[in-house]
């Protein structure tokens, strides 16, 4: 073993490498010297951008929408004076044309959220518990691929199945169950099938990841203590997966309330949802915008309150279980 000579500081044999050149560059040194002068300054420089982003790019639009909802007219036009008013909100409560789609949307979203939960729980349970770990990804991918395809394409696929000349009617006729095609399309049924089709994955994924985290031996321990399959499920598995239930339901509920293309393409005149009502104000003359903004605000607040209340219930339930 040779001894290690000290490394000679002066180096005449060539130019520095990229990183050496960059960090020695006077402009770079000046800038980094400014930004990294102290850990405190470094932190402020780092946090500045996220704060600006959150305020300007994302909170800004929402707050602006709320502000516009209190204006008498927007966009501003010549000769019209803009005043602050709550008229846009009173319009909502005064007319069943607006109230009916609103309640329909809320009821629809809640019912479909619970339907999706009931449908997806066994699927998630099957994936997390009965599929071998190496195969889980494969089984999951099979369900994931359709979800990479966009909303519109999937709605279209549902239209092909449910149309008067669609696959379902063809099958029923071939079986001899019906003679004339059943009009599935443009009804609550087609709309429900579509929404479940579009939102199922947002229920499945949180459920799956919650169930997957529960060690299998918990259930075995309960069985050892004499609990039957149903007791085991309701006393052990379900309470431990409540977090996933909460996340899944929140996601599905909020996505369902915000759907626009789905009710337009799959729904009919009797299934108008609130999103369509809101959009209507933006298709016609500009002075309807404040009303649209007010209605959007109502829906946003309601949706967030419902989702928040739901999460609170879930938290209380799992809190009680934890005790």
């Amino acid at each position: 073993m040779p001894d290690l000579p000290p490394q000679s500081p002066a180096d005449p044999s060539g130019p520095p490498t990229f990183w050496g050149r960059l960090t020695a560059w006077s402009l770079y040194r000046a800038l980094t010297g400014l930004v990294f002068a102290s850990p405190r300054r470094q932190f402020w420089m780092l946090i500045l951008f996220p704060v600006i982003w959150v305020l300007v790019a994302h909170l800004g639009p929402i707050l602006q929408m709320m502000q516009v909802s209190f204006l008498s007219s927007y966009p501003p036009s010549a000769g019209k004076e803009v005043v602050l008013t709550t008229a846009n909100y009173s319009r909502f409560f005064g007319d069943s044309i607006f109230l009916v789609p609103f309640w329909r949307t809320m009821v629809f979203s809640v019912v479909l959220t619970l339907t999706t939960l009931v449908l997806m729980y066994p699927v998630a349970y099957f994936l997390a518990r009965h599929v071998r770990r190496d195969n889980q990804l494969l089984f999951l991918m099979l369900l994931l691929i359709p979800f990479w395809v966009g909303e519109i394409v999937r709605i279209y696929a549902v239209m092909i199945i449910l149309g008067n000349n669609g696959a379902l009617n063809l099958l029923l006729r071939w079986l001899g169950l019906i003679e004339r095609p059943i009009p599935f399309m443009y009804t609550n049924f087609s709309l429900s099938v579509g929404i479940v089709y579009l939102t199922a994955l947002y229920m499945l994924m949180p459920l799956y990841s919650a169930l997957e985290k529960i060690p299998a031996n918990y259930s075995e321990a309960a069985a050892d203590l004499g609990a039957g399959p149903w007791t085991r499920f309701f006393r052990v598995t379900l309470p431990l997966s409540l977090e996933g239930v909460g996340a899944g339901c929140t996601l599905v509920f909020l996505i369902a309330t915000g759907m626009y293309a789905t009710p337009v393409l799959l729904g009919g005149p009797n299934t108008t949802l609130f999103s369509q009502t809101i959009a209507g104000f933006f298709h016609v003359a500009g002075d309807q915008w404040p009303t649209g903004a007010a209605f959007s605000t109502i829906m946003l607040v309601t949706a967030l309150v419902v989702a928040g209340a739901f999460n609170r219930i879930i938290a209380l339930l799992s809190g009680r279980v934890a005790k």
Partner: peptide, 16 residues
């Protein structure tokens, strides 16, 4: 590299 050494000097030092 961050000390500003050249590729040749770096290789020589690594060999050492």
């Amino acid at each position: 590299e961050l000390k500003g050494l050249s590729r040749r000097a770096i290789d020589a030092r690594i060999d050492e």
